[in-house]
Every structure is written in C-alpha cells, then in structure tokens.
C-alpha cells in the first residue's frame, strides 16, 4: 500500500505548492487551530480533533463579491467577476469536514446551480485525514458517518500505529493526485489503521420521525433556554449555508455581496411589515433542528449534519444540536 510517512508530510505539502497549486491546511494561531491558506509547509500544524473553523469558507466565503457597479453620467456600469478558480488542495480536514461538502453540493445545485461554489468544488482536491482521536463533542456515528468516512474526500489518509498514514484514493481526482505526488509517498506492507472509536450518542434518523410529529413540543423552549442567540453554531457549522445579499455602496460605486447569514438571528425572518414568523429563540432553535434533521433529509435524502461537534464545542454556553437530539424522548441510545 501507498504510505505517507509522517516525516515526509511537509515534503508533500511543499511539492503541492511547488507544482503551482494553492494549499489550505491547518495552522495554529493564538492557541487555536484554523484552516487557512498557507504559503509554506512549515506553517502547517495538525490538530488532534479538527480545526475551530470549517473548510466551507474556502468554497462559500464569509463575504463574496457577486458584482461591482459604478454610476456614470447616464448609466450604471456593472462588472461581474469571472467565475474561474485556480486548482487548490485542501489538506488535513477530517471526514466530518469533507462529508459536509457533499451535503451542501445538493442545495447549491437544487433549483439554480451556484456557479462559484461549483467552480471551487471543481478546482479543489480534498485530502482528508481519518480520525485517531475523538472528543466529548464528536458524534459522527450518530448521523450515519464514521471517523473514517470517505464521503466528500478525494484522498483519505488513514493513521497508522507508526504515525505514518496509509494513502487511499477515493475519486479519479484523488487518483491523479496520488500519481502526481508519488515521489513524496512510499510503499509499505499493509498494516491496519488506528481509527478512533466514536460512541453512538443519538439516532438522528429515528429522531427525524419524532421531530415531524412533535412540531409544537415544549422541547425547544427547554433546550434553548440558555441559548444566547448568537450566530456561532451556524457560522462554525460545516453544512449551514444560508446567506444574505447586500449592496455595500461607496459613493457612486459599490458591490453586491453574498454573505453568511444565520437563522439564529431574529432579523433573519423579519418581514418588511414588522411581523416575524420566528419571533422567539425556541422557534429559531426548532428551525435549526428541523432544517438539519427533517427538512433537509426530506428534500435531499441526507441529514444536514456531520456530527463534527463544533456547534457545542464553539458555543459560549455549551449547547449544540447533540444535546437536543439526545433529549428527544426515546432516542437516547
């Protein structure tokens, strides 16, 4: 089998950049691991679990220019940026990060294909590292995934006892990647990978049935009582994809932007009339749960959650969707 030796990981990353490809990988900044564009392989620091931020921002940026405009004498000149992306490699994300790409693909190719998302998906090769550790927030096995799921990855690196990684190709793009960088890999005899054990904490599929039948349940008020109403769980969620369109002007010119938005905010659903169909926290929390575990599976056939655990890990009051899933009567496994 092909192996990436631990000591040669930086050689591989340097080779990727030397070949002219841009690179997204984990770095350490002020004590937190972040996925970021890197300029040098020396910057890369792999986290034990995963990074605080998600890789979605390299496909669906926090704020992206859709067009720019400039008012002239009797006209408005509009320029739309070209939709093209130079190839890049995402290295060192986890299976829960990669699986999210496959989930979001569906909504961004539903009624109208999202050109920039698709261009970046096309340009990216995703090299995932399977997990050898999990923390108290991880729950991939509760949403039908696993610490070594292949979904969304082009190549998966399976951690070995020695600290090296077995290299497995998942897609054609991944095969081309492994061929291109073969010089940074070596051949070893087959050894078993050391994969984390992630206990199943809830059954999201069974929960979906309960959710549908109990829309008016008091569960949401209880579950969200300590919720502060910020946007952290949505902005650090690998599958949350809601956005707002805003024009930001600078005198007579400006830009139209597509920017992250969050169903946690009251303003998200506020009508022009002043009426708000989701006027309180419990109804907004219900929306978040229903969207992930009921509406999305109904529409696209997949749960819109990968169990990465960030909604709990990053939450100022340690909330997150898992707590609500496990509070569903009869679903506590």
């Amino acid at each position: 089998m092909k192996v990436l030796e631990k000591s040669r990981m930086r050689d591989l990353l340097a080779a990727i950049m030397a070949a002219g490809s841009r690179l997204v990988a984990p770095v350490e900044r002020e004590g937190s691991h972040r996925f970021a564009w890197v300029d040098s392989a020396a910057e890369v620091r792999l986290p034990d679990i995963t990074c605080d931020n998600t890789i979605k921002e390299f496909f669906f940026p926090r704020a992206e220019r859709l067009l720019t405009y400039k008012r002239a004498a009797n006209r408005v000149d509009i320029t739309a940026p070209a939709v093209s992306e130079a190839p890049f490699v995402v290295f060192g994300c986890r299976p829960c990060d990669a699986a999210a790409l496959d989930i979001v693909d569906r909504v961004f190719n539903w009624d109208s294909p999202d050109k920039t998302w698709n261009a970046r998906r096309e340009a990216a090769t995703v090299v995932t590292i399977a997990c050898s550790r999990a923390d108290e927030y991880c729950f991939c096995t509760s949403v039908g995934l696993a610490p070594d799921s292949r979904t969304g990855s082009d190549v998966i690196l399976l951690p070995l006892e020695s600290g090296d990684f077995a290299v497995e190709t998942v897609t054609d793009k991944g095969r081309a990647f492994v061929e291109k960088y073969a010089a940074s890999l070596s051949d070893q005899k087959d050894t078993a990978a050391k994969i984390a054990s992630v206990p199943q904490k809830a059954d999201a599929t069974a929960a979906a049935k309960w959710l549908k039948a109990n829309f008016d349940s008091g569960l949401y008020a209880d579950a969200s009582e300590r919720c502060l109403g910020c946007g952290i769980c949505t902005y650090y969620c690998p599958t949350c994809h809601c956005f707002d369109i805003q024009d930001e002007a600078d005198g007579l010119s400006g830009a139209r932007l597509k920017a992250w938005d969050s169903c946690s905010f009251a303003l998200f659903t506020k009508h022009t009339s002043g009426h708000n169909p989701r006027a309180d926290r419990p109804s907004r929390w219900r929306q978040r749960i229903m969207h992930k575990f009921s509406y999305y599976p109904d529409l696209f056939g997949v749960i819109s959650c990968t169990g990465c655990g960030r909604c709990g890990r990053m939450c100022p009051v340690d909330l997150g969707v898992l707590e609500t899933l496990t509070a569903i009567p009869g679903e506590d496994t």
Partner: peptide, 26 residues
C-alpha cells in the same frame, strides 16, 4: 465573523432592536 456573540453575551446589550439590525436604512 459578525456572529454577534459579543452582543448576545453582554448583559448591557438588551436593546429590543440593535443598531446593527436597523436596515431601513442599513
């Protein structure tokens, strides 16, 4: 990232409508 967690966690940010949410005009 404009998650407004700072506002949400602040005891003094109790305004029913925050200036950041006033959008007519923005």
């Amino acid at each position: 990232v404009r998650c407004y967690a700072c506002r949400a966690a602040c005891p003094m940010c109790y305004c029913a409508e925050c200036i950041a949410d006033r959008n007519l005009p923005q």
